[in-house]
Design a binder for these strands. Structure first.
Lengths: 232, 232
DNA sequence: CGCGCGCTTCGGCCACGGCCGTAGCATCGG
DNA sequence: CCGATGCTACGGCCGTGGCCGAAGCGCGCG
């Protein structure tokens, strides 16, 4: 068989708890230092260093040196998508009882809004997608998605400029939300919408997690633009 | 963090070489017995039994008892898609030198034509997809796919009945071919096309692998239907 | 220029988990 | 009803790999 071993090695690399939490921390698309990653994984820097070296030589991570810091990030969007698919399956499999047991305040924020590599996820992202579907601004099916002309205009009106389709990357695709179990918007369109929300000050990141908070101004703007209510 | 541990556990489950080769063997969608899986993984039945039990309780596999045999299969298409995404990334990462080194006769057959869970993959599947795209029978982009009316008619002409969109499963989606690095047709449409090729006797499975062989009749029929040449 | 900080390398400890041999439990055939 | 077959449960062996402490670079800053 061709490359069964490479397949197992990749999965084993992800399967270690410490490495898994570092990869999870990088899912928001930012680049973090070894020390930051060590802290989130609950291990010492020297142990983290070894893990990061293995992940980098395996090609899952990329590293850029900047002064005496070394920033680690996911190597490609394909890696992020792979991690997302594993998360999706494992979330599906987790026993419901246990899932309810660990819902804390931080989890509440995560469920409401978070980043998923470079786009938005959580209740708010699914709600946005729903409204755009209802208005015929996007065609979002589990097996594919497409932005309509109306959708392009709507985003322009929000001050969100979507890069041209010609660029190499995937333009618009659905991404299964693991907390809502319904699709939200990913791809270049999802990334542009996410960037727009941050640059307008509608959303801001919460400390060192993937969760994001809705600012007061953001709440007004988003409720008006998407014609919806955000209560919690 | 919500369920980081479940995430790592799932990946670790896939990361063991023996379990990885068993999961790979099940990627063609068939259900196999513990003994067959043990043989392909190169371990004893009692060891395989333990692995299968863990995979089943984790929800990655499903088991059906039939007399004194127990058939194991992938639990859901989502699991297959997750495995496929890991394969795709790990194939990308494998060093090119090594990849060329292990190309044998069996690999040649695998590269030409194989099953990918429930649809076709390999050079032949990519060629089929290319022809259908060129004729406007399918719209196949990396981020989504759709069958046109012309495509539906073409498949009907081949005696391939595609189940209605209303059914719960994904209708038509692209799947990145790991040997060709280009998309082929997956989803309900891909599965129907694959079933049709088998039921017409155009393709048949090769021993215990995912590879499939083109029968003489199949070669004639496929070359005519898709207006292409199959030389090897 | 030399201290300090971030990161890596090395060596040794320890435990988790895969593997098999043996033995026990179901199901089918004679 | 007894033997054969497919599978599973238990116990012990052993190797792989994660972890940390201590020590060694490399870069920036004072």
């Amino acid at each position: 068989m061709l490359s069964t071993s490479a397949f197992a090695e990749t999965a084993a690399l992800i399967g270690d708890p410490a490495r898994a939490s570092m990869l999870t921390a990088l899912m928001d698309g930012r680049a973090l230092t070894a020390a930051e990653l060590a802290r989130t994984a609950g291990i010492t820097p020297q142990t983290a260093s070894g893990h990061l070296a293995r992940l980098t030589t395996a090609g899952l991570l990329a590293m850029e040196r900047q002064g005496r810091h070394r920033y680690h990030r996911l190597a490609t969007p394909a890696v992020a998508q792979m991690l997302e698919s594993i998360m999706s399956v494992s979330a599906e499999l987790a026993t419901p009882s246990r899932k309810l047991a660990v819902v804390g305040p931080r989890d509440r924020a995560m469920r409401l809004a978070r980043t998923c590599y470079d786009h938005l996820a959580g209740r708010i992202a699914v709600a946005m997608a729903d409204r755009m579907v209802a208005r015929g601004q996007i065609d979002l099916r589990p097996d594919g998605a497409a932005l309509t002309e109306a959708g392009l205009g709507f985003l322009r009106g929000l001050g969100v400029e979507v890069e041209q389709r010609s660029s190499g990357r995937v333009f618009c695709r659905p991404c299964l939300d693991w907390s809502e179990r319904r699709p939200h918007i990913a791809g270049a369109v999802g990334a542009a919408l996410c960037r727009g929300c941050f640059s307008h000050g509608w959303l801001r990141r919460i400390d060192g997690t993937r969760a994001v908070a809705v600012t007061p101004a953001g709440r007004l703007a988003l409720e008006q633009a998407f014609d919806m209510r955000l209560d919690p």
